[in-house]
Design a protein around this nucleic acid. Structure first.
Length: 256
DNA sequence: ACCTATGTTGATAC
DNA sequence: GGTATCAACATAGG
């Protein structure tokens, strides 16, 4: 279930592999390792050691010693990073490093939508959703007129929010996923940023994007944990979306 | 058996 | 340029 919290967990897992000499690389999956040809990543990494693991949103990269190339990793839709585990019996290890101490790091991904590349390019990736400044958040999220939920999912705007986290954030902030981004006031954008940071912090602490309050109700007939209203469901930004029509109205309720 | 659903990203078309 | 749709992949479930 990789969103930002799962990527952060994966980054921490990679840190367990730092400092060990790489003696073999399995880069035979030409889809996961595209555009590299088999053996290219192996040639670039064999003999080196990983020295630091970083993350921006859901994108990870690992530095190597002696000015070696960075290794870029992405979990895709179903991937995770495992260190010092026996190889997957189902053949789901799409990329792997073997270390001199007998240990191993693998990208385990049954759907093959994860990625492993050398010298990843993050030019199009926005600032991390947990660290973006207030001014930057206002500018990047408030621009344009897409439905708000679609903008939250746009990794070029801010990086790290996936489908489950987006619904949780919008519910916490009391904003409709359908609101056009251009209709939000600065105060609403600031509240949205607070909800984003809080949801990310909590989900990392609790162990995943699926640990939000709204998540158990993201099913047909699910109800708002706050008021018990039946949740609305629609496809927004190409993703299935649940929200409370009462606490997250499409238009501001008339003040009285 | 067949159809739908699923956490992501990127390419493509308008 | 901004936005919308589909495709890539493999599995699970009605």
């Amino acid at each position: 279930m990789p969103e930002l919290p799962e990527a952060e967990r994966a980054r921490q897992e990679i840190e367990r592999a730092l400092g060990r000499e790489i003696v073999a690389v399995d880069d035979a999956d030409t889809y996961v390792c595209r555009p590299h040809a088999p053996g290219e990543i192996a040639a670039a990494l064999t003999g080196r050691r990983l020295t630091a693991a970083h993350r921006r949103g859901k994108f990870m990269w690992v530095e190597t010693d002696d000015d070696g190339p960075d290794l870029g990793l992405h979990l895709g839709m179903a991937g995770r990073i495992v260190v010092d585990e026996p190889p997957s019996e189902q053949g789901w290890d799409r990329f792997a490093l073997d270390f001199a101490d007998g240990g191993r790091l693998a990208l385990r991904d049954k759907r093959r939508l994860g990625r492993a590349v050398i010298e990843p390019d993050f030019a199009h990736v926005g600032p991390d959703a947990g660290e973006v400044s207030r001014a930057e958040f206002r500018a990047r999220i408030g621009r344009g007129n897409m439905p708000l939920k679609a903008r939250l999912l746009d990794q070029r705007a801010i990086a790290g929010v996936g489908n489950l986290l987006a619904d949780e954030i919008l519910w916490q902030a009391g904003l409709s996923p359908r609101r056009p981004t251009g209709s939000l006031s600065n105060e609403e954008l600031d509240e949205l940023r607070r909800a984003t940071r809080r949801a990310i912090r909590n989900s990392i602490r609790r162990g995943g994007a699926h640990t939000g309050e709204l998540n158990p109700e993201r099913v047909a007939g699910g109800r708002c944990p706050r008021c018990g209203s039946e949740l609305s469901r629609a496809r927004i930004g190409g993703r299935t979306t649940y929200w409370c029509p009462r606490h997250q109205p499409d238009r501001l309720r008339a003040s009285s």
